[in-house]
Design a protein around this nucleic acid. Structure first.
Lengths: 126, 126
DNA sequence: GACATAGTTCTACAGATGTCGCAGAATCTT
DNA sequence: AAGATTCTGCGACATCTGTAGAACTATGTC
């Protein structure tokens, strides 16, 4: 499932609050991205067409629900990102992240901790 | 600097081998993505227009050089990716990566090692 | 010099995306 | 029930992307 930039906006709002109407969503969107009502509707229609969102009627109005999960969307987005920028492999991204100045020691430690925890969890579960 | 999917292909080939002519590049591209010669030229022109690539003449033919570095491109791509899928923060991506089943213990360790090394380097440098 | 070859610029075009406006149907308010 | 308000469906349109053919020009080859 491939989402465009504005579709991500919509989905992010929808994952956060759903079921939701077009209006609900627009209110929930960040200040800077306030589209015309019809714009949201168009985006939502396209998402429904794609099968990323479900639409049902409550009286006259449409109510939307996400079908794909955020993690699913993240996964495919990550895939694409890796393919384009890192030869499709995770390792290069990992080193890149580790190298990045923008990653603070704190974040670095967080990452290390996450890994350790995850590792422990994996081990313990077996 | 925002690169499209096919632009990434070109850039990846160009970072790998440059200076290069349109023909050089096409040869260097993965089998599946062999465009018509003119397609490459079009893409290259667009990249030149964007300021991502420089063009110079050698006789009749054009020779291209990347202007932006791969890391720069990666950085902005990462930025966009984070903004869309992870609220713009690195941490959520880190946890996501750590959580992912697809990340093997080996990769997890690699990442841990990278972090440790980087940390040491940082510390030692100060 | 005449032709084949390879490079160049221009133009084109369909499909994807970002953004709506309009006009009519449904619903709410007095 | 009339007017105001809110939705909806549909069409529109400018840009961006992907992909390439056409036509012309410079080069290489006998």
């Amino acid at each position: 499932m491939r989402l465009t930039e504005s579709e991500w906006q919509i989905m992010n709002a929808l994952w956060q609050r759903h079921p939701a109407t077009a209006r609900d969503l627009n209110d929930g969107l960040p200040e800077e991205v306030r589209w015309a009502h019809t714009t949201i509707k168009t985006l939502l229609s396209r998402l429904v067409a794609k099968g990323a969102v479900s639409e049902s009627k409550r009286g006259n109005a449409s109510v939307y629900e996400p079908i794909i999960t955020r993690d699913e969307a993240r996964r495919s987005s990550l895939r694409t990102f890796l393919n384009q920028a890192f030869d499709g492999a995770v390792e290069p991204l990992l080193s890149f992240l580790a190298k990045e100045k923008s990653l603070t020691p704190k974040q670095r430690q967080q990452l290390a901790r996450i890994l350790a925890d995850e590792d422990a969890r994996k081990r313990g579960r077996k």
